[in-house]
Design a protein around this nucleic acid. Structure first.
Lengths: 145, 145
DNA sequence: CTTATTTAAGATATTTTTATCCGAAATAAA
DNA sequence: TTTATTTCGGATAAAAATATCTTAAATAAG
């Protein structure tokens, strides 16, 4: 569904957000360790997310990543997906046609659109804060040992 | 959503089915040309689909691929997806956890399950015949020029 | 100012996916 | 039986995604 990079990105944001809820700033290594992601690759992803203003980064000693609580209430999961995977999942044709619309639809167009708008709506109405709160409360996990 | 290979596979099956509705047996080259897929790669995919009994192939002159009308009424799009992409789309965790269930869910588990079961149901209730009929009637297309 | 720590950025490597090529096997028709 | 046509299967190649490494830039603390 999402690229592996995007899965890492979502888990990273949620880990950082969860820690930020406790006012803890985290380093790349912490993120990698607690999301089961490769460290150097995680660095790249966090850098991308920071450029997209989805995270706040601080360089130097005692630096790391964090997200303001206000910000995590605003940010939707859809924004993370968009920043990493682009809009293919929102706009692309299910059968890969370079153009596909009601006027000239692929055979799956109608059915695909329907399911996908559910997915889109789900991603656009789910905030980072909502999910981070669940993780903080121990109701869900970001890594499986 | 689906791999590129899977997109080619679905389009190939639908093209062959559409032609079969007119009792026309088609060759690899025809399939590639009419689905906008690379020919040699299409050959590989058709071979896989044939092994999975989703197509009928005939070797030699006047050979090619076809699908009985009876068969295309039975085959669901879900079977094509499963043959090519496996069960990741049906069972995998949205965030890539190697195990994810209601007991130890990833933060998106519930919402993801919901959307995905819609997708699953859609694929499992859509037959090749249904879509091929649409294509035959000119109501949808497999390639965009 | 110097040192240690941390993210940023670019180059490089590995793995997976996508794609091609070529010879073998099957088979219809002359 | 020979030839032409077609799929099949294995080897190889190219492109994209995933992952690592190395150096630079920023900055806090001594």
């Amino acid at each position: 569904m999402f690229s592996k990079t995007c899965e890492y990105a979502i888990k990273a944001v949620l880990y950082i957000a969860t820690q930020s809820l406790n006012n803890i700033r985290v380093k790349i290594g912490d993120v990698a360790e607690n999301t089961g992601s490769p460290e150097a690759f995680t660095a790249k992803i966090l850098s991308t997310l920071t450029k997209h203003k989805l995270l706040h980064s601080i360089k130097g000693p005692y630096g790391g990543f964090e997200i303001e609580e206000k910000k995590m209430k605003q940010i939707k999961i859809s924004e993370i997906v968009y920043a990493i995977d682009g809009d293919a999942i929102y706009n692309g044709c299910g059968l890969g046609l370079n153009k596909c619309n009601a006027a000239k639809p692929c055979p799956m167009h109608d059915k695909f659109i329907k399911v996908r708008s559910e997915l889109k709506k789900m991603l656009e109405t789910t905030t980072v804060h909502e999910l981070a709160t669940k993780v903080k409360a121990g109701k869900s996990i970001l890594i499986r040992n």
